[in-house]
């Protein structure tokens, strides 16, 4: 009996020690994830320049080897009749503006993962399959993913898609920001393919400045707002647009970071490993009191 208890205590100590070390390990792995969002990479989408040619969809498809669709598939303009969302087959889609009263002044804009500064999906992921890492990329690790799809619920832009048709190894599918390309000083495939350079790739801080210069230079073309500069704490992908596009085609979001409420509660409570320590402390007290009681009983028995 004594031996068992010793074993249990050893185990408990080991568990506590491991649990104390683990958070510091995970923090260490996040170390290279820049908080310096100005120097993270970003893309500025100018919807007033976009002509809706869907070349970015084609380039994305080829880069990520998503489908075998021929080029003609991406030249079909009837897709603009409905509003689309990124899917398992396409990490990005181009939509036309909601207001279709005039074709001449129609705006187009591509949508994809916004690679938020404070991503709700990363916060919601319970296994750390999604991480906000170097270059500002929100990357996905299919090996870690358990398929809970909390990220899909959490995303304010409704971006992540899920391979429901895959029976054995379903993945969450979303824009990768062409991590391999940008890691090697290249541009993402969509940016590279845009014939009119409606997409500008660069350091997020530079892009914000550039966006405001553009607005200042042509105040009649743009609504004086850079979508993504402050929305939900800022996003790596940002949009310049006319008033209608900002109002009808992009979601209305507060400036507050989405994970701020949940994380402040969760991180507050679990700071310095307090709840487990408190729990084990409490259990220790209970065990101690039980032991005391047992001792007393034994003493009483001996006395009697």
């Amino acid at each position: 009996m004594n031996k068992d208890r010793r074993k249990f205590l050893k185990m408990a100590t080991a568990t506590v020690a491991a649990a104390t070390i683990l958070p510091s390990v995970s923090e260490a792995s996040l170390e290279h994830c820049e908080e310096d969002f100005d120097n993270a990479f970003g893309v500025l989408v100018d919807t007033t320049v976009c002509i809706g040619c869907r070349n970015c969809e084609l380039a994305c498809d080829r880069q990520n080897e998503l489908t075998d669709h021929p080029k003609s598939y991406f030249m079909d303009n009837t897709v603009f009749d409905s509003r689309r969302r990124p899917s398992v087959e396409s990490y990005t889609v181009v939509n036309s503006s909601f207001d279709s009263s005039s074709t001449d002044n129609k705006s187009f804009g591509k949508i994809q993962c916004m690679h938020c500064n404070h991503p709700a999906c990363v916060s919601a992921c319970i296994v750390g399959a999604l991480t906000k890492c170097k270059h500002g990329v929100v990357s996905y690790d299919a090996w870690k993913c358990i398929g809970c799809r909390y990220c899909m619920v959490a995303c304010p832009f409704q971006i992540p898609a899920y391979e429901y048709k895959e029976a054995l190894k379903p993945r969450v599918m979303k824009c990768t920001f062409c991590y391999d390309l940008i890691h090697n000083d290249k541009k993402p495939a969509c940016v590279e393919s845009c014939p009119v350079e409606a997409l500008t790739f660069g350091k997020r801080g530079d892009l914000i400045k550039h966006a405001h210069v553009k607005i200042e230079a042509a105040p009649n073309n743009y609504y004086d707002h850079v979508f993504g500069e402050n929305e939900i704490g800022g996003t790596s992908w940002m949009y310049l647009a006319n008033k209608d596009f900002i109002n009808y085609d992009l979601p209305k979001l507060e400036e507050e970071k989405i994970p701020s409420l949940t994380e402040s509660i969760q991180h507050g409570i679990f700071k310095s490993f307090l709840p487990p320590l408190a729990l084990y402390g409490f259990l220790g007290l209970v065990m101690h009191s039980i032991r005391q009681d047992k001792k007393k009983e034994e003493e009483n028995d001996e006395q009697s």
């Binding site: 500025l44 320049v49 845009c194 009119v196 350079e197 500008t200 660069g202 892009l207 210069v213």
Partner: peptide, 16 residues
């Protein structure tokens, strides 16, 4: 960043 490359400049003028 404000100035498109030659490819972008041509395409903007023609395609838009």
């Amino acid at each position: 960043l404000r100035q498109p490359s030659l490819k972008g400049a041509y395409h903007r003028q023609c395609m838009s």
